[in-house]
């Protein structure tokens, strides 16, 4: 092998060793720096924590607070955000006021408007929402359409916190266009706002959405009021044959008024729809529905038989004697096995 290749290998190896030594030194320095930062955080939090607690309890401090220093704002935000997440109502409003008293709104609006690090932008996006700072509306609206799903959803949540009535008609249609938004987080947002605010914009969005996007929106119908849910179910269930749409509708059924629509779907050609129909009957039906459920005990699909047996059990109020007599009347082994399993699960 040529000697220059050997030299090259040796120097590469030595450079790697030197870089490792530098890396280890950097790690040790980083640890030291983190330790110092952590001490600063602890010191500041020790000061801010009682203030936050007093604010939550509605107590005002007699001492005027020094305004927040720009370099400490992220540390303050982390503590303040934590408290906000764990309280509701008046305590939350008090914390919002406390944030303003500390001057947080002046800092975060600047960060939101000028280009900043991802970490600061995200925290500022969330902070403006908590502070209900209307000056942040335009920048938040811009980042609502950002490619980064975390930033766009954080913007949606902040817009909804600033002015839910104006924000929801903008945000809800985005739900079906942003499959990257976590359903769990969307649900959390809609739950936080409540059915009064959610129902009308959700109904509008479903009405105006293209056919392929309706199912994604109907999945959130459980966060609207019952009459909105019923209106949507009466509109789509009698006409559609799409199993995903039907399953979503059946999951959103929360009123006995839609029982005829549910019963119609017990014999749907798609097994996932039959499963959801049995589940919905279990929630909303009465003992008269047991006869409609009995044929499902011999269904080809295990899940249909299982959910039908569970629904029968619930509709008969877990009466073991009644189940036993029903089981004796069955000629199909699958039906009796499933009823026996469901009774055994009750313990």
């Amino acid at each position: 092998m040529p000697s220059d290749v050997i030299d090259w290998a040796r120097w590469l190896g030595l450079s790697a060793i030197a870089m490792t030594v530098l890396l280890l030194l950097y790690i040790l320095l980083l640890r030291g720096w983190i330790w110092l930062m952590d001490r600063r955080r602890q010191r500041l939090w020790q000061h801010w924590r009682p203030l936050c607690m007093n604010t939550v309890c509605g107590l005002t401090s007699s001492d005027p607070q020094l305004p927040l220093e720009h370099r400490n704002w992220l540390l303050f935000f982390r503590l303040w955000h934590h408290y906000l997440l764990n309280v509701q109502g008046e305590a939350r409003d008090n914390l919002r006021r406390f944030g303003r008293q500390m001057g947080l709104h002046h800092i975060v609006i600047k960060i939101l408007i000028r280009a900043s690090t991802d970490r600061e932008s995200l925290a500022a996006t969330v902070a403006t929402g908590w502070l209900r700072d209307i000056r942040a509306w335009e920048p938040l609206l811009n980042s609502l359409y950002a490619e980064n799903s975390v930033l766009s959803f954080a913007s949606a949540r902040s817009l909804a916190r600033i002015d839910p009535k104006t924000a929801l008609p903008i945000i809800i249609p985005q739900i079906s266009k942003r499959p990257d938004w976590s359903k769990h987080l969307i649900a959390g947002l809609l739950l936080e706002l409540g059915p009064e605010l959610v129902s009308a914009p959700l109904l509008d969005a479903i009405g105006n959405a293209p056919a392929e996007q309706i199912t994604a929106l109907i999945r959130f119908l459980r966060f609207a009021d019952v009459s909105t849910g019923n209106a949507v179910l009466f509109r789509y269930m009698p006409t559609t044959q799409d199993p995903e749409l039907l399953s979503a509708c059946l999951k959103a059924a929360y009123s006995p008024r839609v029982l005829p629509l549910i019963r119609d779907r017990l014999s749907d050609s798609h097994w996932t729809v039959r499963v959801e129909a049995a589940n919905a009957l279990s929630r909303l039906g009465n003992s008269d529905d047991v006869n409609d459920l009995l044929p499902l005990l011999t269904d080809q699909q295990w899940w249909v038989r299982y959910r039908a047996a569970q629904a029968i059990g619930e509709l008969l109020r877990r009466d073991k004697d009644k189940i036993a007599s029903l089981s004796q009347a069955q000629t199909d082994r699958y039906a009796t096995d499933m009823l026996a399993q469901v009774v055994a699960e009750w313990g």
Binding site: I6, A9, R10, L12, G13, A16, I17, M19, T20, L23
Partner: peptide, 12 residues
């Protein structure tokens, strides 16, 4: 030279 290269890269 080869030993140095192998160990150096492993360490890095």
């Amino acid at each position: 030279a080869f030993l140095i290269l192998v160990f150096g890269m492993g360490l890095l």
